[in-house]
Amino acid sequence: MLDDRARMEAAKKEKVEQILAEFQLQEEDLKKVMRRMQKEMDRGLRLETHEEASVKMLPTYVRSTPEGSEVGDFLSLDLGGTNFRVMLVKVGEGEEGQWSVKTKHQMYSIPEDAMTGTAEMLFDYISECISDFLDKHQMKHKKLPLGFTFSFPVRHEDIDKGILLNWTKGFKASGAEGNNVVGLLRDAIKRRGDFEMDVVAMVNDTVATMISCYYEDHQCEVGMIVGTGCNACYMEEMQNVELVEGDEGRMCVNTEWGAFGDSGELDEFLLEYDRLVDESSANPGQQLYEKLIGGKYMGELVRLVLLRLVDENLLFHGEASEQLRTRGAFETRFVSQVESDTGDRKQIYNILSTLGLRPSTTDCDIVRRACESVSTRAAHMCSAGLAGVINRMRESRSEDVMRITVGVDGSVYKLHPSFKERFHASVRRLTPSCEITFIESEEGSGRGAALVSAVACKKACMLGQ
C-alpha cells in the first residue's frame, strides 16, 4: 500500500517536472537572447534605426563620474514606483581627507489618484512632500541643488532636461508624456511658492545606482535594477552614441532593455503563462523582457503555473481556492519566502493557508518547484541581457580580458534567497573573457542622484555659470 502511494507521488512529481521543464533555458538559448539583445542595442544607438529599435539606448548626458572633490548639501528625489523618497545628502571631506556622503531620508507613498490623475496632481503632491521634508529638517530658507531620480523612459536633451516617452509600472498621470519632466517639477514648486529649489540633474535609477557604486569602486561602469521592473545602464564610447554629437570619451546610456521583445525577438521563448500575464497587464505587448524578470510579474506567473497544475490534477487534489483564482493573489514576496523555507515546509504551508488552501507535504514541495522554475528562468533571462552589455563593452574597448564592476539594486536581487547566485553564475558562463565584480548599492537611487548633481554643480562652477 505504502509502495503504491510512494509510486503515485513519484509519478505525480515526474509529471510536474515535465510541465515545469518549459521554463528551462539551455545555454544556447541564452546565447541567442544575448546576441539578439546586442543587435537591438546597436539599432538603438544608431541614428537611422533608433526610432524602430525596441531597446532605445537613451543617452543620459552623464559623462563624468564623481571624483571626490564636490562638497555641499544636496536634496535628492526618487520616483520610480508607488513609494517616493526625499533625501538630504551631505557631501563633504571625511576623516583623513576621505570623501564622505551622509544621508537623511523619508519615504512617502503615492496615492492612487496622483498616479493615475493628471501630471499637475502628481507633481503638486511631490512638491508637497518636499515642503514637508524641508519643514522637518528646518531647511526651507536654503535654496538647495536638487537631483531627481526618475525611473521611467526619458529622452534627455541635457542633464536637466528630459522628455517622458511613456509611463510604465502602473503610472498613468495624463499630460506628462511628451513633456519635460524637470519643467513639470519646477512648475509645481513655483505653484507652491513656499520654498526654492535648483533642479540641476535628472537621472534614471540605473544611472543613480551606477554612480553610487562608483563611489565604492571606481571600476563600476554598469548599473542595473532588478526590482519591480528590470533595466540597466553602462558607459558607452561616445563615438557609438549617434544621437549625441561628439566622439570623445564616454557617456552613460540608459538601455531601457525592459522593452526588448516588443518587436518579436522573444516570441519563441514566451510561454502561455507569459501571454496571460501580458494580456492582463496595463501595457499589453510592451516591456516583454521586463515581464519575464521583474517583481511586478513574478508572483503572478507562479500563480498561473499553480492553476495549470491544479487543472492537471497534480496539486491540491485538483481544487483551487477562490483566493488562488484571484489575479495578483500570489505576491512576489511569497516566491522569495517559499524558496527561503528551511525544509520543514512550515513557511510554505503558512503562505498557502493564507490563500485558503490546506496543502499536503507533496503540495508544498511542488509549489516550491514552481517558484524555483519561474525565478530561475528570470535570473537566466536577466543574465543574457547583462552578458550582452558586458561583452559589447569588452569588444568596443578591444580588451582581451576586461575587469568590470556592476552596481545592482532592486528588491528581487536583494531579497530573493537564490536569485543573485543563479544570476551571477549564468552571467559568468556567458562572459568567459571578463572578470566581473557585483556590488549592491546602498540607498543607491538617492545618493547617486545627489552625486550626479554634485558633478553638475562642479561643472557649472568651472564653466562660470
Rank of each mutant, 00 (worst) to 15 (best):
C213D: 00
E265D: 10
G92I: 03
D194N: 08
S281L: 03
D29R: 12
L2W: 11
N179P: 02
M87N: 06
A378W: 01
M57P: 04
A387Y: 00
K104R: 10
Q98L: 08
S383K: 04
S174D: 08
R192W: 04
G356M: 10
L45Q: 00
Y297N: 01
V374C: 13
Y108I: 03
E14G: 06
V305M: 15
D160E: 03
N350C: 01
L324E: 00
S151F: 00
N204L: 03
V367P: 01
A232Q: 04
E268K: 13
S433K: 13
R327M: 14
L47V: 09
D365N: 11
G229W: 01
H424D: 04
R35K: 12
E322I: 09
E51Q: 12
F419T: 05
Q347S: 14
E300A: 09
Q323C: 10
S54Q: 13
E93P: 15
S433Y: 15
A384Y: 04
A232I: 01
S76P: 03
R392D: 11
S321Y: 08
G356I: 03
K296G: 15
E395P: 09
C364L: 07
Q337D: 13
L304I: 02
A329E: 09
E312R: 12
N350K: 11
G170P: 01
N313A: 12
P145G: 15
K346T: 12
A208Y: 01
R428V: 10
E128V: 08
S69K: 15
R392H: 14
E421L: 10
L352S: 09
A378N: 04
Y413I: 07
F23D: 14
I351S: 11
S131G: 15
E112C: 09
L315M: 09
L20H: 05
M115T: 05
A370Q: 05
K39I: 13
E339A: 04
Q287I: 08
V154W: 00
H380V: 12
L451V: 03
K161F: 05
L165A: 01
R250M: 14
L2G: 12
I126F: 06
V412M: 15
D135E: 07
R333W: 02
V253A: 04
S426L: 11
T332V: 05
M251S: 06
G295E: 04
F84V: 03
L314I: 13
M298I: 06
F74I: 06
S64E: 15
Q337N: 12
A454W: 12
I293R: 00
Q465R: 14
V452Q: 15
A320I: 15
N83C: 03
G444Q: 02
M34T: 06
V222C: 06
T376D: 08
E322M: 14
V427T: 12
L451H: 01
A232H: 00
E435M: 09
K414Q: 11
E177F: 03
Y108A: 03
D341E: 11
L77Y: 01
G356D: 04
L306T: 14
H156C: 03
G264E: 09
P111Y: 05
G318H: 13
C252K: 04
L243K: 00
G261T: 07
I225H: 01
Q24C: 10
V203C: 04
C213L: 08
S212C: 06
R5M: 05
M202Q: 00
D217P: 09
I159E: 02
V338T: 12
E70H: 06
A320T: 11
E67A: 11
R43F: 13
G246M: 01
S411Q: 07
E331Y: 07
E290V: 02
E177Q: 00
K459Q: 15
I163D: 01
K31G: 06
A208T: 13
E272D: 08
V154F: 03
T361P: 13
L122V: 02
E48N: 13
R7N: 13
V305Q: 13
D205S: 03
E51R: 10
I19T: 07
L309R: 02
Y413C: 03
T149C: 15
E120M: 10
F133C: 01
L266K: 10
L301W: 03
N254L: 04
L47Y: 12
E421Y: 08
L430K: 04
T60F: 01
I126Q: 00
A21C: 10
S100L: 08
S281G: 11
D4W: 15
